[in-house]
Design a protein around this nucleic acid. Structure first.
Lengths: 346, 346
DNA sequence: TTGTAGGCGTTATCAA
DNA sequence: TTGATAACGCCTACAA
């Protein structure tokens, strides 16, 4: 591997001149610049980004932590971030929760690992860490931003869709289609994004005098198996296997996929017998059977803004950033008319 | 940020001693070792991995390129690699195809980007690059290994499941269930993994005197929309909308998901009217409606071995590596009995 | 416009 | 067992 010294020697100039010619910082006569470029090409010179990092005191690396790469939600975020980073010549050191332990510990470990890798900034998606955890982290790493959650203290360093509004939207959608007796498959207890959407949902129902009965509610963990299991529990609790509810709000699309599958296997038709409303609008939502009606979260926008914000923080850039990410309902086939009159919600 | 110099000064020793004490390389008296450790703790010292990389001439970074992070296939690979890497204290610089251009150009750009980031090794998943592309790349980067494809020249640097056997298995599965008139939804033309599985599939059918009729074959691109479109074309070609085929082999599960959805929307029942056989055994396969019968590819094993191989190459390790990844059929509900007698294939 | 030299934070060498 | 010191490859004053 040739270094800038080799290039300088071959071009017959000093290293500083070579450096300036190659980086474009500082003035070099057009003639020598060309000589240097030729020499670099001849030697197939590639600058060492490590040396550059040491000298400049910045690695150009942004650490990205997600609980898992699989699952459509986080992989979309990672893909978006990679795109933004590459467009400004930085790269992504990605880590996900792996090993054994509580999800909180996994998240903490992964983030710690990233911090040890000289990242200029950090983007973290975690719903297992509490506000204190994140605050402590931000104390150590001022360039850390959180996605998909809100923060009390460092508000500007958190980017999150309005899940409360999302939940509200979900309730209105079901009400508007004439459903009154409604079940929910929730996300994991104590995760902020789950809580927000369910509070929004239940709040809106309550506003119309409706509550979800305890036996019509089951917890999942945002993944396939738990979605399936939750629906099984809901079905098992139904007298004679014929549920009283006519619609289910499922806290994410992944679980909704599993719920539909379970419903169909139980001999129930979607949406004729039971309507299913998802959340997230994952890329597979249009392709479930039947296609999934769901609440779209503009995840790509959230990730883009979060990433731009770290970039601004780390490199003094001034990339435009958005903080408002309104969800919307996407009507497909999995929600049908319920037994009651449509209820318009202002 | 404190450096090793600060630690050395506080501990009252030279930097070399501090370095030895902290890294464990070289002998240090127990007493001074403790003093150094205390000083490091007191200063909250964290070694600069950049400086370490420059000095050691290795970055401890492995570049990972996948065409996209979304989609279950690649995200599983990335997650697996991250786990292996972390377990040996290395990290992953991940990149995916982004921007505009042919997929081949995207792949080339992404890999180039990674090469410029001082990665010690590279793991590449691409079915858009041809053998020459990869060979040229390996000339420049001897520590590059390919996953999910075979290579003629640098055979050992490629890790791939036996997709030909996978296709053969798929054919046998359908034959064994009494199907004779069979359709296929293929992956993208000219991609090696698609070709292998389809050659295996068609070859096995041919062995039993069966061929897939041209109008019973459609190309997709391994993604949701193209799977849907392919099935639409198959249906459109059927006289009166009643297809003559009783089963479809779909070249991956993602497209199979879309195919089932399209079939159901066309009023066809799966598997009563049409059986659907997928490929990959993605994590959602048990949760489609009906659950998807598919060919399982041990992707995690492939990724693990590929990763260990780079590790061995880069750092002179001797991690165990496997090269045989046999596929198997996973029976679920989407394939039902066909109109003919079961055919056992030896 | 150019070149010399010092520094970035480690690790490794080598003499003490 | 220790501690100066010289790399590692780049960038950037500073001086010419």
């Amino acid at each position: 591997m040739s270094t800038i010294k080799d290039v300088a020697r071959l071009a017959g100039v000093g290293v500083a001149t070579a450096s300036r010619a190659l980086s474009g910082n500082g003035s070099v006569s057009e003639d020598t610049a060309r000589r240097v470029r030729d020499a670099a090409a001849a030697l197939d010179y590639r600058p060492s980004s490590t040396a550059r990092a040491l000298s400049l005191q910045q690695s150009s690396a942004i650490g990205v932590y997600v609980p898992g790469f699989d699952g459509h939600f986080y992989s979309g975020i990672v893909a978006t971030i990679d795109g933004v980073l590459r467009s400004v010549g930085r790269h992504m050191i990605a880590a996900n929760g792996c090993g054994i332990g509580t999800t909180r510990q996994l998240d903490l470990d992964g983030i710690d690992f990233l911090i040890g890798r000289d990242c200029d900034g950090l983007i973290v998606a975690s719903n297992s860490l509490d506000d204190d955890d994140l605050e402590r982290l931000m104390e150590r790493v001022p360039t850390l931003v959180a996605v998909n959650r809100r923060l009390a203290v460092h508000r500007d360093n958190a980017f999150c869709a309005d899940h409360h509004a999302g939940g509200r939207l979900a309730a209105r959608a079901l009400l508007a289609r004439g459903h009154r007796c409604i079940a929910t498959v929730r996300g994991p207890q104590d995760t902020p994004d789950n809580e927000a959407r369910l509070n929004g949902f239940n709040g809106e129902l309550a506003r119309h005098g409706i509550t979800v009965r305890p036996e019509h509610s089951a917890d999942g963990a945002f993944d396939l198996p738990s979605g399936d299991a939750a629906m099984q529990r809901l079905l098992a609790a139904a007298p004679g296997g014929r549920p009283a509810f006519t619609a289910v709000f499922v806290a994410n699309d992944v679980m909704a996929l599993a719920c539909i599958s379970r419903l169909v296997q139980a001999g129930l038709r979607v949406p004729e017998d039971i309507s299913v409303l998802g959340y997230d609008d994952d890329d597979f939502a249009p392709y479930t059977s039947p296609p999934l009606t769901t609440i779209r979260i503009p995840t790509a926008s959230v990730a883009t803004s979060a990433c731009r914000h770290v970039l601004n923080l780390c490199y003094g850039l001034d990339l435009p950033v958005t903080r408002d990410f309104p969800p919307e309902v996407v009507w497909r086939a999995s929600v049908g008319p319920g037994p009651h009159a449509p209820m318009e919600c202002p």
